[in-house]
Simulated scan of single mutants.
Amino acid sequence: MTHVVTQPCFGCKYTDCVVVCPVECFYEDEKMLYIHPEECIDCEACVPECPVEAIFHEDNVPEDWQEYIAMNAEKCDDLEVITEKKEPLAEE
Results as ranks from 00 to 15, higher is better:
E92H: 09
L33N: 05
V23P: 00
M1Q: 00
K85Y: 07
N60L: 08
I82M: 04
K85T: 05
P62L: 03
F26I: 05
I82L: 10
C12Y: 07
P51Q: 15
V20S: 12
E30P: 02
P37V: 04
E91L: 15
I82T: 05
V19K: 02
V61M: 06
P88H: 10
A70R: 14
H3I: 02
A70V: 14
V19I: 15
D29V: 10
C25Y: 02
D29K: 01
A45K: 08
D64C: 03
E44G: 08
C76F: 12
E28T: 11
P62I: 04
D29H: 11
D42P: 03
A54Q: 00
M32A: 14
L89N: 06
H36A: 13
C76M: 07
L33D: 04
E30F: 07
E39Q: 13
P8K: 14
D78N: 12
E74N: 14
E87R: 08
E80D: 15
T15S: 04
K86N: 11
K75L: 11
C46E: 09
E49S: 10
C12Q: 02
E58W: 06
E24Q: 08
V23M: 01
D78H: 07
C46M: 06
V18A: 14
K75M: 09
L33S: 08
V4A: 01
E49H: 09
P37W: 00
D16I: 06
E63M: 10
K75N: 15
A73W: 01
K86V: 11
Y34P: 10
K31I: 14
E30A: 07
D59Q: 07
H3N: 13
T2S: 15
Y68V: 11
Q7W: 00
C9E: 10
L79W: 04
E74W: 08
E53H: 08
F26A: 05
C50S: 10
C50T: 06
V19L: 08
V5Y: 09
E53T: 02
K85D: 02
D42F: 07
V52S: 03
C25M: 02
A90E: 04
L33I: 03
K86Y: 02
G11V: 07
V52R: 03
C12N: 15
D29C: 14
V18L: 10
V81W: 00
C12H: 11
E87L: 10
E39W: 00
P88S: 13
I82S: 08
E92A: 11
E53K: 08
E39A: 12
E49W: 05
E84V: 07
I35E: 02
C50Y: 00
L33Y: 05
N60H: 07
L79R: 13
P37H: 08
E28Y: 02
